[in-house]
């Protein structure tokens, strides 16, 4: 495509994706967030609060879109029968807290409070972090290519974060909360301990320091990634056909959550990839078996309790961290 044609196509994409979305974000910011910032003497945080508002609206939209796609699919071809609705309701609560509260707050608070001073100190002392655009300057004019490259690199780091969650003992005590779901549905993606979410935000921020800040279109990639992640947790008999060797399918990820498979063996489990399944193939952890096993952790079958409600699961996570549960 010619440079001009590329720019035109890009225009259409941007207009299509952003117009409606931006008006909702703007309306909410103007009528609720900005007056609050002004009355609390926080006007200096306007830009960050505007971005957090976009995360909030994006989170709400992604819940709606994901539910509209996944609910009918789960009804059409379920991988297992749901044993108790309470389990699912807990994960719905996790999704609401995560996508509407935690994600906007983390994007707003963690980056501002923790990462920026580190970045400032490093740069003041002459350490200019590496950026992907340093290697390929043409990326600056190709944000869509750039955004895919950033997505690939970040997904690589996400694969290794996930492996460490299973490898490091204390980290697994937090991550076990995510694996303890015996009634796994698309809502289960956000079922994580609050400390684990905080670590994930810091991990991502550190990567941003190492490879540069992804382009402004990156939230679109986040929402696409989160959609694939939610779908991969769905209670759904679907293996994506040949596409399973590229993207993480519901079957591929169900094997990762399987009792006796997902957290066992020399590598502390299989199928760690978050978005692109080829990382597992590359690092020898892929298991493409054509099965839909039961999900959970082995010690649940011998009576270990990981809690059922939102607060129970959080509290027991803290207790496990300090070897008290």
């Amino acid at each position: 495509m010619s440079k001009c044609g590329q720019a035109r196509a890009y225009n259409l994409d941007m207009e299509f994706a952003f117009q409606g979305f931006e008006s909702i974000v703007g309306w909410l910011f103007i009528n609720a967030v900005q007056p609050l910032l002004f009355s609390l003497d926080l006007m200096s945080w306007s830009e960050q609060a505007f971005d957090a508002t976009a995360f909030f609206v994006g989170g709400a939209l992604s819940i709606v879109v994901t539910a509209l796609v996944c609910l009918p699919l789960e009804r059409l071809a379920p991988a297992q029968r749901v044993s108790t609705r309470t389990n699912v309701r807990t994960d719905v609560a996790y999704t609401l807290v995560n996508k509407l509260g935690l994600l906007p707050l983390l994007s707003f608070g963690v980056l501002l409070a923790l990462v920026t001073p580190v970045d400032a100190w490093l740069r003041l002392h002459g350490f200019a972090p590496f950026s992907l655009e340093d290697v390929a300057p043409m990326l600056a004019a190709l944000p869509l290519v750039s955004v895919l490259l950033y997505a690939l690199v970040i997904d690589f780091f996400e694969y290794w974060r996930h492996r460490l969650q299973h490898r490091i003992h204390w980290w697994w005590q937090l991550h076990a909360l995510h694996h303890a779901q015996r009634d796994m549905t698309f809502w289960s993606d956000d079922r994580n301990h609050i400390l684990d979410e905080l670590i994930a935000a810091l991990w991502l921020a550190t990567i941003a320091l190492l490879i540069g800040v992804p382009p402004a279109q990156f939230p679109l990639v986040i929402f696409a990634t989160k959609f694939i992640e939610s779908l991969s947790h769905a209670n759904l008999r679907w293996n994506f056909g040949l596409l399973k060797y590229v993207l993480v399918s519901p079957q591929f990820h169900r094997v990762h959550h399987a009792i006796g498979l997902g957290h066992e063996g020399a590598r502390h489990g299989v199928n760690f990839a978050v978005m692109f399944s080829f990382w597992d193939k590359l690092f020898g952890t892929a298991d493409f078996r054509d099965e839909y096993p039961a999900t959970g952790i082995r010690d649940q079958t011998t009576g270990r309790d990981y809690g059922m409600t939102f607060w129970e699961t959080q509290w027991l996570g803290f207790k496990r961290l300090f070897n008290r549960a």
Binding site: A7, Y10, M14, P143, V213
Partner: peptide
């Protein structure tokens, strides 16, 4: 007339 990528922020 055109919306052109220029860099980040």
């Amino acid at each position: 007339m055109e919306t052109r990528p220029v860099g980040k922020e």
